[in-house]
Amino acid sequence: MDAIHLNDLAFFAYHGVFDEEARLGQRFLVDLTCWLDLSLPGQTDAYEDTVCYASLVKAAEAAVTGNRVQLLEKLAQIIADAIFDADERIARVSIKVRKPGAPLPIAVGTVSVEITRDRPAIS
């Protein structure tokens, strides 16, 4: 299956377990991979035949900045749900959320979570 990749999307938000994270906020970096059939836009070169990259960025931004969660795992799931809502042609999504300012007991380091989800079947 074909894929669209959006990497290093940076958003400022207030996620984390500690009170300081909720009060001060920090930067989160998001990578998205969206799997779908891109054969039609590959043939037609028509904008309407593909997924709008900007709409994916806006969906991710709304998911990251419009919620307050403790865990990166939950944040990744919220982003995945938002991406599926953004365009029905997306069959699978992989979300990687990095937290460069995570409170770790070392001088530098990055924490990240990556999930892959298939579009839920409609019942």
Score class of each variant (00 low, 15 high):
Met1Cys: 12
Met1Glu: 13
Ile4Arg: 04
His5Thr: 00
His5Leu: 04
Asn7Val: 07
Leu9Phe: 15
Leu9Lys: 11
Leu9Asp: 13
Phe11Asp: 14
Ala13Lys: 14
Gly16Arg: 01
Glu20Arg: 10
Ala22Arg: 11
Ala22Thr: 07
Gly25Gln: 11
Arg27Pro: 01
Phe28Pro: 15
Val30Tyr: 12
Asp31Ser: 14
Leu32Met: 11
Leu32Glu: 13
Leu32Gly: 12
Asp37Ser: 08
Ser39Val: 03
Leu40Ala: 02
Gln43Gly: 10
Gln43His: 06
Thr44Ile: 08
Asp45Trp: 15
Tyr47Ile: 15
Glu48Pro: 01
Asp49Leu: 01
Asp49Ala: 01
Thr50His: 03
Val51Arg: 07
Cys52Gly: 12
Tyr53Thr: 10
Leu56Gly: 00
Thr65Arg: 13
Thr65Cys: 15
Asn67Cys: 09
Val69Asn: 07
Gln70Tyr: 14
Gln70Ala: 08
Lys74Asp: 10
Leu75Trp: 04
Leu75Ser: 05
Gln77Phe: 02
Gln77Arg: 03
Ile79Tyr: 02
Asp81Pro: 01
Asp85Gly: 06
Asp85Leu: 04
Ala86Arg: 07
Ala91Glu: 09
Arg92Leu: 08
Val93Ser: 05
Lys96Phe: 09
Leu104Asp: 06
Leu104Tyr: 06
Ile106Pro: 02
Ala107Met: 10
Ala107Gly: 08
Val108Gly: 07
Val108Ile: 06
Thr110Met: 09
Ser112Tyr: 12
Glu114Leu: 02
Thr116Ser: 11
Arg117Ile: 09
Arg117Leu: 06
Asp118Tyr: 14
Arg119Asp: 06
Pro120Arg: 14
Ala121Phe: 08
Ala121Asn: 15
